[in-house]
Nucleic acid binder design. Sequence first.
DNA 1: GTAGTTGCAAACAGTTTGCAAGGCA
DNA 2: TGCCTTGCAAACTGTTTGCAACTAC
Lengths: 138, 138
Amino acid sequence: MTYEHILNKIRTCGGRISPVRSAIIRNLLAQDCLISYDDILSHLKKHKLTPNRSTIFRELRFLVHHNIIHKHMIADDAYYEIPRDHHHHLICLACEKITKILMHDHLVCESTKIAKKNQFMITGHSVEFYGYCTRCHA
Amino acid sequence: MTYEHILNKIRTCGGRISPVRSAIIRNLLAQDCLISYDDILSHLKKHKLTPNRSTIFRELRFLVHHNIIHKHMIADDAYYEIPRDHHHHLICLACEKITKILMHDHLVCESTKIAKKNQFMITGHSVEFYGYCTRCHA
DNA sequence: GTAGTTGCAAACAGTTTGCAAGGCA
DNA sequence: TGCCTTGCAAACTGTTTGCAACTAC
């Protein structure tokens, strides 16, 4: 999903392209992994945009609702990302740093079995590894 | 971890065994998967216990802090369980029902590789499959 | 008796809502 | 112009805190 791809998707369903909206989308595209509300806020500030909190929440909800971004809850905090390459996360329990990891995903084939066994339509899965990063472990 | 096992662990670190505490632990032991704050509250009511909200939150925090229970955030809601058999979850995006699943866990061996590659001390992992249960899919 | 546990009220953080004003197409 | 987006203030939910009263051991 490129920037233009996303804009078209938004226009198709009646949405407008406002400065705040496009800045948030650019921010999410520039990132290749999960970012928080605060990350987004500080990125907007750098671009001289200081929208109200409710605007940011509404925007993120809009993008989630239109399936443009995904929301993850990690240790009580919300994080967002544009789903592109399928990947998983490594989460430090001390500093909360999130690292993206790529791995050969056995779960993709496993999920077919699980779906059949449990009579469940699986649309996605997530994997997180918890522990301590080098800095926090030391 | 049996009931007595848990009580001893609590006593060892200076905790007392109050009616609310033991009822919550029994509730968690009776369940073999994730339960919510509301599940706990209604279980307590059945046993004629009506503690204050803050008491329940404090208790759950106490148990998490002493590593007796684990807390999971699923779709903005908190769930708790006593870690016994290692298992994963199937989550219905419509009715939010959570089903426990057992599967051959390739991730256990995968995690050693990931730990080494990322210089990260892995202490645990979680896997969730998202989708729609039979009832919600129909 | 001492220290841990509880109820209550108040505070708090994150998030949502109603409404009027502003802005994109 | 019409409808979407925004700011503002207020409401709301889940959770935490301070403090005095209570209770397990």
